[in-house]
Computed example of a mutant assay.
Amino acid sequence: MTQSFLSRRACLALMAAAVALPGRAVASGFREITWADLIPAGVPYGEIIGLGQIDEVNDTWNPEYDANGKKVNTRLNGKAVKLPGFMIPFDVTSAGVTTFMLVPYVGACIHTPPPPPNQLVFVTTARPWPGDRMWDPVWVYGRLSAQSLTTQIADVGYRMTAQKIEVYEW
């Protein structure tokens, strides 16, 4: 009968791999999606069909979209995804941004009418994103929820709790 023992070096290497693996598993366990993926297959992009309402208190225009703008891709519900976009901050502390809307292009919801609800993601994060980086394009990693929400800026079709946020570099 032979006994095999791991060398001390092999044990240390295994322990180091076990510690490093969860971080890599988090990054690799996310499916990269695009904004087009948030629209169900076969559904055209939502269009503004009516004037909507002017919110004089918040000085915003809440447009009225056709039914396509409110249709969400339920196949992504509960999926771990990675989505690029820009932040529209809601809650900012001295540590940084903790709640924001992820939007597909710069200025969405602020300088132009908001995109349709199925093109907006409401994000919360336990780790604040630094305030001096909030205008950078970002990748947001998290579990997507096809759950609507009305905010002071727009109706939103998705929610996500960010597990990781990083600068988008191209």
Rank of each mutant, 00 (worst) to 15 (best):
T2M: 13
S4C: 11
L6A: 11
S7C: 03
R8S: 07
A10D: 12
C11S: 04
C11R: 14
L12N: 01
A13K: 03
L14C: 11
A16T: 03
A17E: 02
G23H: 09
A27N: 04
S28F: 05
G29Q: 12
E32D: 14
I33D: 09
I33L: 15
I33M: 15
I33S: 11
W35D: 03
L38P: 06
L38F: 15
I39T: 14
I39V: 15
P40H: 07
A41H: 04
V43S: 04
P44G: 04
Y45W: 10
G46H: 00
I49K: 11
Q53E: 04
Q53K: 06
I54P: 00
E56P: 00
V57Y: 12
V57N: 00
N62W: 09
P63S: 04
P63W: 06
E64T: 08
Y65A: 01
D66H: 04
A67I: 02
N68L: 00
G69P: 01
N73V: 09
N77M: 10
K79I: 12
A80H: 14
A80L: 13
V81P: 01
L83D: 09
P84K: 10
G85R: 06
F86R: 04
F86W: 15
F90L: 15
F90W: 08
D91H: 12
A95I: 07
A95L: 15
V97K: 03
M101I: 13
G107E: 07
A108P: 02
A108W: 07
C109D: 03
C109F: 07
C109Y: 05
T112L: 04
T112H: 08
P115T: 03
P116L: 06
P117W: 06
L120Q: 09
V121E: 07
T125S: 11
A126W: 07
R127L: 14
P128S: 11
P128T: 00
G131E: 14
D132H: 14
D132A: 14
M134C: 11
W135E: 10
D136P: 00
V138S: 02
V138H: 01
V138K: 02
R143Y: 04
S145V: 06
S148Y: 10
S148Q: 11
T150M: 15
T151F: 12
T151K: 03
Q152C: 03
I153D: 03
I153K: 10
V156A: 10
G157E: 05
R159T: 02
R159Y: 08
Q163Y: 14
Y168N: 08
E169T: 14
